[in-house]
Design a protein around this nucleic acid. Structure first.
Lengths: 142, 142
DNA sequence: TAAAAAATGTTATAATATAACATATCAAAT
DNA sequence: ATTTGATATGTTATATTATAACATTTTTTA
């Protein structure tokens, strides 16, 4: 069965729904807390759902933040490489959808005699919205 | 005082020495264990030394592995951006020294109206040595 | 040498993640 | 429809990674 056609179980759907509604990445224990009413009671239930969702590409982990985000792409089945833009001001995260990154990295790796398989890229900076309010307001509002 | 001229304290030097001798990235509690004989007794002593070493660019954290590696570059004072090649076969890690990565990422980010500040890149694949032994031996020796 | 800044030592605890195992559910192929 | 094998669940316990809080000491700077 193709990954993209895979039917989710209750726990998996519960976790995915929450992540898709969220504006920001969520941490595992935040997910646990927010899904108690849906019957998820233990960390393992969250981690197992996350593992599966990551495997089928519906969710990505942001390693440097220990947090999880729903994939923005329809029918994404790339569980492998990820590229994020992380705003240091508001903590919002978006995916960098650059199709040529893998081949670029493959080329860079090759120069070090390294065979590229996949990557995780986390770019930190200031997002559009925060950049705007910074100019308008004159200072960052934390 | 310039960061590169900074003199290290005992704990900091102990942790750095260990990391520089190591062929692979080390985890914090592995560092703790290996430095007991040098007088480091508690996790906080390790984490505090690591924090400082990271701040002055002598050590980098590999986020997806929760492990730490000494910087390969002489007089590195870049505590900001990091780029690693991580071998999935032998777990060895080397730094990708590509001076134009930041400007490349800045350009990519700009297309998403995102102001690049720094990045963390973790490329997974197979290193030169493992690639070789794979061909010669016919299979991976774990 | 006094004041300020940074580092230390120590105990406790927070935050993140997995082990182990018994049970249940689902999908495919008889 | 029923066995079978794979996958998911529920649960308790525990491992792993990291920080809080606070008293003390050392180092740096003025």
């Amino acid at each position: 069965m193709a990954l993209s056609a895979e039917k989710l179980t209750n726990n998996q759907q519960t976790v995915l729904d929450l992540l898709e509604k969220s504006k920001e990445p969520l941490k595992a224990y935040a997910i646990l807390y927010d899904t108690q009413k849906k019957g998820i009671k233990a960390p393992l239930q969250v981690y197992r759902a996350l593992d599966k969702l990551i495997e089928i590409g519906k969710v990505h982990k942001i390693e440097s933040r220990n947090s999880y985000i729903a994939c923005e792409h329809k029918n994404c089945n790339s569980s492998t490489s990820t590229s994020f833009l992380i705003c240091e001001t508001c903590d919002q995260v978006s995916e960098l959808t650059q199709k040529n990154l893998p081949s670029y990295f493959a080329k860079q790796s090759e120069q070090a005699d390294f065979k590229y398989a996949k990557h995780n890229l986390e770019i930190y900076g200031v997002c559009k919205d925060c950049s705007k309010s910074l100019v308008v307001g004159g200072k960052i509002d934390h």
